[in-house]
Design a protein around this nucleic acid. Sequence first.
DNA 1: GCAAAAGTGTTAGGTGTACACCCATGA
DNA 2: TCATGGGTGTACACCTAACACTTTTGC
Lengths: 229, 229
Amino acid sequence: MTKFYLQEDKLYVSVDCIILGFKGNAINVLIIKRKFEPLKGERSLMGGFVRRNENIEDTVSRVVYDYTGIQNVYMEQVGAYGDVGRDIGERVVSIVYYALIDMELFDEKLEKENNAEWVDINNVGQLILDHNRFLDDTLKLMKRRTATRPVGFNLLPEKFTLPQLQLLYEAIYQRPLDKRNFRKKLFDMDILEKLDEKDKQLSRKGAYYYRFNKGKYDRLLEDGDYFSL
Amino acid sequence: MTKFYLQEDKLYVSVDCIILGFKGNAINVLIIKRKFEPLKGERSLMGGFVRRNENIEDTVSRVVYDYTGIQNVYMEQVGAYGDVGRDIGERVVSIVYYALIDMELFDEKLEKENNAEWVDINNVGQLILDHNRFLDDTLKLMKRRTATRPVGFNLLPEKFTLPQLQLLYEAIYQRPLDKRNFRKKLFDMDILEKLDEKDKQLSRKGAYYYRFNKGKYDRLLEDGDYFSL
DNA sequence: GCAAAAGTGTTAGGTGTACACCCATGA
DNA sequence: TCATGGGTGTACACCTAACACTTTTGC
């Protein structure tokens, strides 16, 4: 490769990942106690340096896999943060992504192995450096995105019930939703496929399982902000 | 500064700037013919490398100033683009920003000096590398932003008329707007201050100049997506 | 006086929101 | 049979979108 930019500075480039999952009726974020200096032992997001021959999203996939055991997750870039003093170790430009995962697929062995824990997004304490800012920015973006695109489903198992889905959106919007209005909108969009099976864990009657109608889902994703629950 | 990350790779980090202005009834973007290798002479966005001791936004300000002569512009990050092969010269992570400027403040001397030209955003030809993608992503973001936050004003002079403002939003939405509905919404928001002066360049009757009511404007900016024209 | 752009209110239709009861089942 | 959560339809309020005429002024 020809060298054109020799006189320019090079910087460390890292990714920081906000891994989000849904459990019970809260959205949780995975937090670790940092294993290396500087700030060893402090609460932190998961990160990794971008290698010379690695695409940024591959770095994210690598980090997410290392901490969850899951591949092919839904991810979105939040932004690049690169103020001179943001990392106390060195000048590091951090590119922040969030990932939505199905917590049922989470490899729980990794929790202890990595000193990791899932914490309710409304109850995250202090994190190192500017990681609280990363999280705040992420949550704003994630809420807007799940409100306007059908991506919240990535937080649920493949089969899910409508009460589950509603709990998820109540956690996202942080307010109760009207059951009938919620279902009306959903059915109007026609993106769900009703299964014959019921989930009887939460009620005697049982709630039908649903799955996505992938075709409609893809068309919704194309462009424009149609989706809204 | 202590050295913790010595074993990690360092990368070139650049910014690319999409400088947008409004003139007549079109939104324009500033394009240059690149002055250095690789791809010398090709049409390109304005960029610059992030220096070791420079905040990213300062790099953007520097580039915007170099090409327009304007300081303190409104800017927003579009995202970081860092695939391994995106720059043919070397591995470069590019952080893309757009800036909204008042074209009346543009220093026209710089146009020739930099081989620059303003082109209608609907008529930009082929640009180098992934710059067309940068532009597409920017325009989507800018349209969403100007539709939900009162930032479009940065494209106008301090004093502007309502017909001007409407033309601007018609250019953003790429569709005609109803004059009465447009004004009704604006007045309901109560963010404009009517001046006694009229602009008689475009009509015999003359249109009143307006200015922002900075107080209301700031409150709108705080949070939530209230604004909508 | 006339051409050209600026300025001003009302109505209908659609979208979002509030609201209450019956159903199925296991214990 | 009863307690628990699952499932269903309607009425009103609000907001959005459509629409036409009068005013001012320079020529």
